[in-house]
Design a protein around this nucleic acid. Structure first.
Lengths: 336, 336
DNA sequence: CGAAATAGAGTAAACGTTTACTTCAATCGA
DNA sequence: TCGATTGAAGTAAACGTTTACTCTATTTCG
């Protein structure tokens, strides 16, 4: 069995209260001499305080829960790394929960996290259902959303403005001289990454006086590479005279790139493509993909900071809209 | 404050012992009538058992720790998903620790996990130093290595045989008719992913009677995309008459692909490339990358299963060599 | 010099559970 | 009928800490 504070106390011939005070660096209550004695005993026995006992009495677990759907591992893993970094810096652990986009698993996890008495939760990249929200408020700990938001329920979020970012991407294409642009969208039912991006696309079209008929949007079920492939095939089949495409995710863009290659359509010579996310793959694509960046790592960090702020102050804190920007690489051609 | 078992007991007019028995489905010690009463009180108060109190008395936290360096997020995130899946299935939580390949951070985390009384640990994708090993045995809980191993220290591991896999890749190239093959290696000092792959490469060369001078190996510091780019540039500069290259990681392969594209070298027409890992990017590459697969998800699962087995039986369990195989895509050309 | 202040250290309660042990009433068998 | 058995339920100790409170010896100061 692992040594307990009692063993240390016995070993150093003091009371457990004294040991506790020394270990917690309570400013008062012991002499330098006994401190040395105790520290020696600690070394000797290789004593490690039991965090669960501590947690019980302090009512603090120094642990947060993070829930992500497994979708598009690249996106979520960057977010995760961001939150891990600040959690670690602040002395907290993170329990990682992969929801697999399953309602049951999410609810299961929320229950579990509640029992484990995590002090905060970060919920990422999927839409917040009523059941989730209820479960979260029932836990009575701060929560923050990352890369998602909810109009209906008041939880602070950190994300980029999807509509804005889509607008920026589209406007960029237009400024490069494109007049007929297709959008390859993810699920339009998705109220956070689906619809808003379509809206931003259309708004840019309108603002620049382009006609909607010339600039169709094709929508898929999700935002994956496979979706990108089939979306692109549909686009080509339709033989619209489009010169550029705005993909709602980098994975879609890369899928498009890939089938373009197979169809012998040269990018950007014959067709320009802009992505969305700035995942690592966009840099690695051939040609390197011009895309709109979401600062994922920073978003993870900000979300965690927001959460810890909430945990300290007891108030929710303000949502953060993260800046997005175009990363110019080589998949978009400037038209004369 | 959250309701405790006492509140439930009071509310149902029974003792806390009874509540506890009912909640734990102890087969005996209460009537159906009181059970119903208690369950109603639980509902009413929305009571959730406090896992930390439970953990204290049972000496079980139902939690494992997972340590990964952040290197190449794609690789580790797949592993992570694998372990998460089985951990969840078995009712355990996973504390995710990103070591950033830093010795200090790793040791910090090991200490923390020890204090949190995790019941097992999974250590992945980096070399096990003496200090780590000591820290792990000091915790006195089972541990398993994944995607790494240690000759010196006896911990069970699950990984593919790197030398074998490199051999397979090289032999494949040779069978496709290639006689001059370059290897783009990661860090040759790396005793798990570096040296063994080089050894496998050389052994295949030898076994098939090819001369080492015709088949140079270029080595970098790491296994990244950037490394792949510079490695490939060096290869071309050297103007060896090589017809195929074996890259020690998919990221290296994709880096090579990318600079080949820029240098106007057609793959696989002019040059064949085979990768290693079978990350998602290899499927997305242009052309789709032929590579040797490591079944990462399964490796994560196996590692977790091995760990839980160890936790139950109290004995370390047997290491597992996972199968590897060639995934044929389009980056390797068959020579006449 | 003696009372008050102070510093060092110990005692014990509390955190929310589980569980061995006890108590009590009802049922059973002879 | 009565002791033995059984089943339901309660009591209290224990898990490893923290901390309010207490005690004692020493220092301080008028």
């Amino acid at each position: 069995m692992k040594p307990t504070i009692k063993d240390v106390a016995k070993h150093a011939n003091v009371s457990i209260a004294t040991v506790s005070r020394i270990l917690n660096h309570t400013s008062v209550g012991y002499s330098a001499k006994t401190e040395k004695l105790v520290m020696e005993a600690v070394k000797e026995l290789d004593y490690r305080p039991n965090a669960v006992a501590r947690g019980l009495i302090n009512n603090k677990t120094q642990t947060i829960g993070v829930l992500f759907p497994d979708v598009s591992g690249m996106l979520t893993s960057e977010l995760l790394y961001g939150v891990e970094e600040v959690a670690h810096r602040l002395g907290h652990s993170v329990i990682f929960c992969n929801t697999s986009s399953s309602g049951k698993k999410t609810l299961d996890y929320l229950q579990l996290l509640s029992e484990k008495r995590v002090e905060g939760i970060i919920f990422g990249s999927s839409v917040l259902t009523e059941a989730y929200y209820e479960a979260i408020v029932a836990m009575n700990v701060p929560a923050v959303l990352v890369s998602t938001k909810s109009k209906k329920y008041q939880l602070p979020y950190v994300k980029v403005d999807d509509k804005d970012a889509a607008y920026t991407a589209t406007a960029y294409l237009i400024q490069q001289g494109h007049r007929r642009i297709a959008m390859l969208s993810g699920n339009p039912e998705d109220s956070v990454a689906g619809k808003p991006r379509i809206d931003g696309f259309k708004e840019a079209l309108r603002d620049y006086g382009l006609k909607g008929e010339d600039s169709p949007v094709y929508a898929a079920e999700g935002f994956s590479y496979e979706d990108g492939r089939s979306l692109f095939a549909r686009l080509i089949e339709a033989a619209t005279g489009v010169t550029a495409v705005f993909a709602a995710s980098d994975e879609i863009a890369v899928g498009a790139l890939s089938t373009a290659y197979q169809m012998n359509i040269r990018v950007p010579t014959e067709l320009s493509i802009i992505g969305y996310d700035n995942l690592k793959i966009s840099e690695m694509a051939i040609p390197p993909l011009t895309t709109v960046e979401q600062p994922l790592w920073e978003m993870g960090k900000k979300a965690a900071e927001l959460l810890f702020e909430g945990m300290e102050t007891g108030t929710p804190g303000k949502s953060i809209i993260m800046p997005h920007r175009i990363i110019e690489r080589q998949s978009v051609k400037q038209l004369v």
